[in-house]
């Protein structure tokens, strides 16, 4: 495959948090339409790798390109709106309602506010729109995060342990979102320790061990 088409192109990437080396010599190529399942034990560096891909942690070595941009350059700030990340802790404001949280994201991203309500409806939370996040269950909060990614429609979607605290209908929802991103020519990277659960969502797998992709 031509390298210029890949959404993620990592060659020998290393990453540190402080002085601790978390990743070393990571090679990873992800092309449009691909959904890669990233497996590894606790502490293998899955979350760190996702944060590097998301431009939130600068690589300390190697060559890293995401969406055609070198992560060592200042251009990395420009691709951020095209990347979606759902971590294991919800990035929501507990004092705001479910809808207000989405509307905040929409305002920052410069989107039509009506998209927020529409996305909330799509994840089945239209009835709970005015409820405060702080008074909602963890499962509901995760659904709000999915609604956010539906609304933002990223080219590259990164999911960290997407299955925690989800009921079957919510898992179906994640699968729907993943399929949507792939259909539009995007790519998905999802980190998990459970190979079987994510199997329906991935086109191939990669294992992270000893700080590198095996």
């Amino acid at each position: 495959m031509p390298a210029s088409d890949s959404l993620i192109l990592f060659e020998g990437v290393a990453a540190r948090i402080g002085v601790a080396t978390i990743l070393r010599d990571v090679d990873l190529v992800v092309v449009p339409g691909e959904s890669v399942g990233l497996f590894g034990a606790n502490g293998a560096g899955k979350t760190t790798l996702l944060r590097v891909i998301a431009t939130l942690l600068r690589p300390s070595g190697g060559s890293a390109r995401v969406l055609g941009v070198d992560l060592a350059s200042q251009d990395r700030f420009d691709i951020r709106p095209r990347i979606g990340l759902i971590g294991h802790k919800p990035a929501l404001y507990p004092e705001l309602s479910l809808l207000s949280n989405l509307e905040f994201s929409a305002r920052i991203a410069g989107l039509d506010l009506r998209l927020a309500r529409k996305a909330l409806d799509q994840v089945g939370l239209a009835q709970a729109a005015t409820r405060l996040v702080g008074e909602s269950s963890y499962g509901m909060q995760r659904r709000v995060e999915f609604a956010r990614e539906i609304m933002l429609d990223p080219d590259l979607l990164l999911l960290d342990e997407p299955h925690s605290a989800l009921d079957p209908s919510a898992i179906e929802l994640v699968e729907h979102i993943v399929a949507g991103v792939l259909e539009r020519g995007g790519a998905v990277v999802l980190a998990s320790h459970d190979v079987e659960k994510v199997a329906p969502m991935v086109t191939r797998t990669a294992e992270l061990a000893g700080g590198t992709v095996a």
Binding site: R51, A54, T55, L56, F77, R80, P81, I83, G84, L85, G87, K89, P90, A91, L92, Y93, E95, S105, I108, A109, L152
Partner: peptide
């Protein structure tokens, strides 16, 4: 308290392209 953001909230707002 309400002006303090969690690391997840900071990641989100960065990725939104602020």
């Amino acid at each position: 308290r309400t002006s303090i953001e969690t690391p997840e909230q900071r990641d989100l707002i960065a990725l939104l392209g602020i």
